[in-house]
Design a protein around this nucleic acid. Structure first.
Length: 571
RNA sequence: GCACACGUGGCCUAGUCUGGAUAUGGCAGCAGCCUCCUAAGCUGCAGGUCGGGGGUUCGAAUCCCUCCGUGUGCGCCA
């Protein structure tokens, strides 16, 4: 339930009545001013043309014609706006009761019939995930959580690229290179352990034409559907994937299902795509290789020639991706992809190909810009790289230092647990904080931000609320919340009342960065309340305030959970 | 070169979709606040040509054009 909706609808119907008496039936917006001038506002500027009057005069006249309202405490005209303040006591009562009544479900939307398949991460299993790509799982997992909170049935999926030269080369390396010949790695984790084999195999292939021939041969057998080669390569990819999945688990990213790209070669669907596409009117041939001429399809440059086979007839990555999308469409009503901005052309080609195959559906894509380092673009080969594992480890270590500083009363294990929650949370928070399309330069001091607009700030507010509730013990939850009307209480309640609409916008419009902002606003309002309003020593206000503290605790926990962060009870 | 995206105080960022009230927060800086529910907190101060220019509009950070800067793409790679 959205505690604000009743206030909104009362203001709206009152304004409708006022405008009707002035002779207009026109639709109008009702907004929530960010400046805090009013709780709700109707800009009268769009009505100026219809009424042929100045907005200021319209607002003035409408304000005089508003009927009596029960939930609005004040309505007035100002600068061409018709402003409303909601009744503080009424909002307090409906908000606190809604939050306490719904608990973990407060903020959730109605269940939606659509089944959503959200593909994210899908990084090539040729090395550990680095922070340049780390935006992908974090955005994907957070969006999945937001959409679930909105009421969608969401499945997250990872497409494992176990096809192509890169993985084949790695598989070759594991079979032919003696472990004693490669450099040791400092991290005992499958994905990191395989890196030196990959590097060495790359060097050997460049230096030795015999190696290059063996790899090429393996690739041909793979493309021909040789089950033995496919299995070898898949086993290699699988080892790498284990390590990647471990890293994802560390930051609480859950993948529901893995799809293996080689399956589309094995089951012949990629082949069927080739056959269907080759019947298209825009299909052309160049030295045996087939392509779609996408001239005039909104694509520029050489990308208008979308090749879907090589001259030897084998398929290309996007061809298999088309097969994958046909498969997705059979399983879900909506397909959402989280992709790096380098995939834009490929996705445009894919969308066109799907159209030529007679599908009126296309995946909804969210593209993110790459994270670079101050010294430039990340590159595993050049050694200019920060792995996600490094980031997580460093974050936990720095969090541990902070915990040690303030909580040396706790046992070591408890301190570690808190540090884990804080460090990992900070990593996620600092990435979803900024919109996906913004370029990001990775800086340790920003990624490790533990104060201000950060995960620990929000988690700390939650821990503080828990601490009060712990000390309070049992209390009277039926106390009337309408007494909560001082400035700090009112401000906090307004924030709590906003949660359902924030969830809705974050999930429906894929604007997940609104959630960290919201968390910060709630935590900040609570910290002010905490500083100036006594709860346990609140005398006759004690029970009502405890109910507000509990409501805040619930909202913070729900919001943190939607961000994939833990809500620690102490820190 | 062509295409797509991004540019908001020293640094990071909201607001841009859907034009509207004094442009949101944070970091760093300065000055305060712990006999009182956890100071990872609170309060105050200082800091802005919303990349530049032009246009549309009663009104532009927001829409259009142009220029500049940054990123990405323009493989029979994945």
């Amino acid at each position: 339930m959205d505690p604000m909706s009743q206030f909104r609808s009362e203001a709206k119907s009152a304004a409708e009545e006022a405008f009707r008496s002035m002779g207009v039936e026109a639709a109008f917006d009702i907004e929530t001013p960010s400046t805090g001038i009013a709780d709700l506002a109707i800009p009268c500027f769009p009505l100026a043309k219809v009424l042929r009057k100045a907005p200021v005069a319209i607002a003035q006249e409408a304000a005089g014609k508003l009927p009596a309202m029960k939930l609005v405490s004040r309505a007035w005209a100002e600068n061409g706006y018709l402003n409303f303040n909601v009744d503080k006591a009424a909002l307090a009562a409906s908000t606190v009761r809604a939050v306490l009544g719904e608990g973990p479900d407060y903020g959730r939307g109605q269940d939606k019939p659509e089944k959503v398949l959200l593909e994210h991460t899908s990084v090539n299993p040729t090395g550990p995930i680095h922070v340049g790509r780390a935006r992908n799982p974090i955005i994907g997992d957070t969006l999945a959580r937001c959409m679930r909170a909105c009421g969608y049935d969401v499945t997250t999926e990872y497409l494992v690229n176990d096809v192509g030269k890169q993985v084949v080369l790695l598989a070759w390396g594991l079979e032919h290179i003696d472990p004693s010949e490669v450099d040791a790695v400092d991290r005992d984790k499958a994905d990191h352990r395989l890196v030196p084999f990959y590097r060495k195999a790359n060097q050997m292939m460049e230096a030795d034409s015999e190696v290059a021939k063996q790899v090429a041969d393996m690739l041909v057998r793979f493309e021909a559907g040789d089950a033995e080669v496919i299995d070898t390569v898949r086993r290699t990819a699988s080892m790498m994937l284990d390590g990647i999945v471990q890293s994802l688990k560390a930051i609480n990213v859950q993948i529901d299902r893995f799809t293996w790209e080689s399956d589309f070669i094995k089951n012949g669907v990629a082949r069927q795509v080739v056959e269907e596409l080759s019947k298209c009117a825009v299909c052309r041939e160049d030295k045996g290789a087939l392509y779609l001429d996408l001239e005039g399809c909104g694509i520029h440059g050489r990308g208008t020639k979308f090749f879907f086979t090589r001259s030897d007839g084998t398929t290309l990555y996007t061809t298999r991706d088309i097969a994958y999308h046909l498969n997705k469409f059979g399983r879900a009503d909506r397909a959402i992809n989280i992709l790096g901005e380098d995939q834009k052309l490929g996705q445009a080609q894919l969308a066109n190909a799907l159209r030529f195959l007679g599908k009126d559906r296309a995946p909804e894509c969210i593209f993110y810009s790459f994270v670079s380092l101050p010294e430039g673009r990340m590159s595993t080969r050049k050694g200019v790289v920060v792995y996600l594992d490094d980031l997580i480890e460093e974050a936990e270590e720095r969090a541990m230092e902070e915990v040690r500083k303030r909580r040396d009363d706790l046992p070591e294990e408890k301190m570690k647990e808190i540090a884990r929650n804080i460090g990992r949370g900070a990593v996620r928070y600092n990435i979803v904080r900024v919109q996906p399309e913004k370029q990001l330069v990775f800086k340790w001091e920003e990624a490790m931000n533990f104060e201000g607009n950060s995960a620990p700030f929000v988690q700390y507010a939650h821990a503080r609320a828990c601490s009060i509730l712990r000390k309070a013990g049992d209390f009277d939850r039926s106390a009337d919340p309408s007494v909560l009307t001082n400035d700090y209480e009112a401000k906090l309640i307004k924030e709590l009342a906003r949660f359902p609409s924030v969830i809705e916008e974050a999930g429906e419009k894929a604007r997940i960065h609104l959630l960290p902002v919201y968390c910060h606003d709630v935590a900040s309002a609570f910290n002010q309340f905490y500083t100036y309003v006594p709860v346990l020593k609140g005398e006759e206000m004690k029970n009502a305030r405890l109910a507000l503290v509990e409501a805040t605790r619930i909202v913070l926990a729900n919001a943190l959970n939607t961000l994939g962060l833990s809500a620690p009870e102490e820190m």
